[in-house]
Nucleic acid binder design. Structure first.
Length: 223
DNA sequence: GCGACAG
DNA sequence: ATCTTGTCGC
């Protein structure tokens, strides 16, 4: 981690992304996951203090079995397309503090559904060496047709004729979510795993619980 | 040149 | 991301 570069102008960071792109694997998962982690961060507006956390759930019951959170400081501002350089450092520290490493991790943001295929889920997966899924609430790159307003309807997202993931109507009367693999699995894996993690909310449980956890860390509420 | 643009 | 009440739809 100490040897990894996180700061620089977008030209330098783009070079890093182009190099990381070569390390991505989209080979199907060989074993179904037994545990899945949800990772997210939370910040107070205008502050550089970041609360990063990872919640590990049993994939079968979707009940949390472990979690870790850290307080860190972001070094770079948010720039569309370079989100990982801002979030992964803190997330990786939370990963190191985790007693139980999950088989796969779901992150709030994109995986390969990114101009250079290196969204936050991809970057984290390559650094932590764990298969990841990118679950974003808004599109960043790629072309797609909006899915019908029917729960479960889905369309594919492609970037320059390249399949990068899906636009999925996870719940009725809700905007769709964008699913793509980060690394270590196929698009189909990312989709099926995400579908199994839905429990009546727009966001799948790993992402939902991770968001609640880091938000609780930030506001210091009980729970 | 113009618009778009994860968290 | 975060700041925020009521309100519309199922």
């Amino acid at each position: 981690m100490e040897k990894v570069q996180w700061q620089g102008n977008t030209h330098e960071l783009r070079k890093i992304q182009e190099r990381l792109r070569g390390d991505i694997s989209l080979q199907p998962l060989t074993q179904p996951p037994r545990t899945i982690g949800g990772a997210d961060i939370s910040l107070n507006r205008g502050s550089r203090v970041v609360y990063a956390g990872i919640v590990v759930l049993d994939f079968e019951t979707l009940q949390p079995i472990a979690r870790s959170g850290v307080v860190d400081e972001v070094e770079v501002p948010y720039v569309p397309g370079y989100l990982s350089f801002r979030e992964v450092p803190a997330l990786y520290r939370a990963w190191q503090a985790l007693a139980i490493k999950p088989d796969v991790v779901m992150l709030d943001g994109h995986g390969i559904m990114h101009p250079r295929m290196v969204g936050v889920a991809t970057h984290f997966g390559l650094v932590a060496e764990v298969p990841t899924i990118g679950c974003a609430k808004k599109p960043l790159a790629g072309e797609f047709i909006d899915p019908e307003f029917v729960p479960g309807d889905i369309t594919t997202v492609e970037y320059q004729k390249d399949m990068r993931g899906y636009c999925y109507r996870s719940r009725k009367n809700c905007r769709p979510i964008f699913i793509s693999p980060g690394t270590g699995m196929s698009c189909e894996d990312a989709l099926s795993i995400t579908q199994k993690c839905l429990r009546g909310y727009r966001l799948p449980e790993p992402a939902r619980l991770a968001h609640a956890y880091v938000n609780q860390l930030r506001t210091g509420q009980a729970g």
